[in-house]
Write a protein that binds this DNA or RNA. Structure first.
Lengths: 343, 343
DNA sequence: CTGAAAGCGCTTACAG
DNA sequence: CTGAAAGCGCTTACAG
């Protein structure tokens, strides 16, 4: 492996000058820079990240923490973030909590983060108080996407979950539905995404605005995924007197609902309307009506907000961005929602 | 930030002993180890990865390269690999090629890998000759999953794509279909996953085994995703005299086919049967028949095969595993395939 | 089983 | 604009 002094020797300069030239620092003459670049090129030199990090105090890495990379929203966010980080020359350290408590402790207890990254991005990861203070102790810049828990001084990018849920509920009300069920994530799940709490709030608010009283019998909690949607819907059907419409807290739950309804012999949308939130890549295939949210844009924007201060010279200090940045959502009507049938 | 000498001072030993005790080396007395661990705990000490890497020559990181993390197979593989690596104490450096040529060059030209990782995992990433030799020059252990291009001395985990395709085609033949179309990935796409070449080969072989001649008019190439499946199917229908069955090279393409058929007013499976390969998380929801492949198992097994030699002391040398490890697939019949209708 | 010392390969004041 | 030298925080022979 060629080292910096090999390049220095070939270019006829000191290692300090090589270091400066390669990093594009302004205090190098054009001619010297040219010679250094040529020498580095000729020797196929690549800087040793470990040495550079140790000497320079920057790791060039960003930790990205997601609950489950296999779910639509997180996959899309990570893809967008990865693109942005790579363009900016940062490595992406992926942490997929995956419901494993041990993993959660390693990451959020910061053992896995300590001295390893320059910044942290938390996607839909609610935190205990102890975790918030452990993260704060690291003293690193960070950002959250779609977070229930705010980390002091970290900005947040998200959608307005209450508004999205209200729009979905309103769409069903506009179609004449009155028995509108809601299925959402399990609040007892330690690793639960908290957006569903806001979504339930929006659902209830919109019902009340229409003069209806939310019926606890039509509100079921389960896992925030396909299987959870299936189980929640089965539970709903077991209770008798099924709803004419179901608002699922995310598209994957809505897809599970579709399965359960089909298996129960109910037709969508003739017997039951279904709507979700996300605009999952497969929602079109399934004809699922939904509230579309811009997942890639949230990832890109959050990555940019995280990195811009790092480049700016100050180490990401400052209590900028106190209010969350809210990205817009929009109703997408497909074939899973229709006017309620006359009884 | 506390450093190793803070711990050494508190424990009353040298930094060398702290280093050994913390890494669990056997040459430390039980009593000393206890004192060191207590001191480290008390001071909340975490080793500096940069310093450790520079001094020790190990990075504790593994690069994982995938074409697109948002596709089902890659998401599931990465999730399984991440779990395994984290348990083993390795960081996962994610590289999502995402169809960006610049990114491909950075990663596979090894600029992004050089001196950064202890090992490399390539998932479904075919390589140019120059890339193979650039990777070989790094001298790192590596492994491929589902790779078309073999890297000399790197083992490979995969399914038997030819056999999977034959099974899918046979299922359609058994149902009486004779006009069986195939839709698969675009070979002109530089970043294309090459498994589809084997899948086409299996499709053709099975047709021939049944005494049929593969009809080029029933064989369409497109993107290896939902949208590609839609476009390929539209093209197929434009050609007139539609097939009675479609074998898609992956479930996401099959899902695209489902959309195109529905939009064309054709019913599945009454008018056209559809089968894919994968057993995507949503295949059940869509009632899609498929050849299930064990994605998480491939990831786990590959991670294990990659890391075991690293732990074993030798640096992953040796030309073990010359033959690819093949994991089994199985036919899953749902509702998208049915006997051909009498004409 | 333990320690003193060299060294890993860079970057950064400091001086000129 | 450039260089000599210290230092980043560990690990690893080497010696005992």
């Amino acid at each position: 492996m060629t080292r910096i002094d090999d390049v220095a020797r070939l270019a006829g300069v000191s290692t300090a000058t090589v270091s400066r030239a390669l990093r594009g620092l302004p205090t190098v003459s054009a001619d010297t820079r040219r010679r250094v670049l040529a020498a580095a090129e000729q020797l196929q030199y690549a800087v040793s990240p470990s040495a550079s990090r140790l000497a320079g105090g920057r790791t060039g890495s960003v930790a990205v923490v997601v609950p489950r990379i296999t779910r639509w929203f997180f996959g899309v966010v990570v893809e967008a973030v990865e693109e942005f980080l790579n363009e900016a020359g940062y490595d992406l350290l992926l942490h997929n909590l995956g419901g494993r408590e041990r993993n959660r402790q390693r990451v959020l207890g910061t053992t896995a983060l300590h001295k390893r990254v320059d910044a942290i991005m938390l996607v839909a990861t609610p935190l205990h108080d102890a975790e918030v203070s452990a993260l704060a102790t690291l003293g690193l810049p960070g950002i959250t996407i779609s977070s229930g828990t705010a980390v002091p001084s970290w900005p947040c990018v998200r959608i307005d979950d209450v508004a999205a849920a209200r729009t979905a509920t309103r769409h069903l009300l506009d179609l004449g539905h009155r028995r509108i069920a809601h299925i959402s994530g399990d609040p007892d799940d330690e690793l639960a995404f908290t957006a569903h709490l806001d979504r339930r709030r929006g659902y209830q608010a919109e019902l009340r605005a229409a003069g209806l009283r939310p019926d606890p019998g039509l509100d079921v909690e389960s896992g925030f995924d396909i299987d959870g949607g299936t189980r929640a819907t089965e539970e709903l059907l077991r209770r008798g007197d099924p709803p004419t419409a179901i608002f699922a807290a995310c598209d994957e739950m809505a897809m599970g609902a579709l399965t359960a309804l089909r298996d129960a012999g109910l037709r969508v949308p003739q017997d039951v309307s279904v709507i979700g939130i996300d605009n999952h890549a497969l929602s079109g295939v399934l004809g699922l009506s939904t509230i579309a949210q811009p997942a890639a844009e949230q990832g890109r924007l959050a990555a940019k907000m995280l990195l811009d201060p790092l480049a700016g010279g100050n180490g990401g200090t400052g209590s900028q961005h106190s209010a969350p940045v809210i990205l817009p959502t929009r109703l997408v009507v497909r074939h899973s929602t229709a006017p309620v049938r006359a009884h």
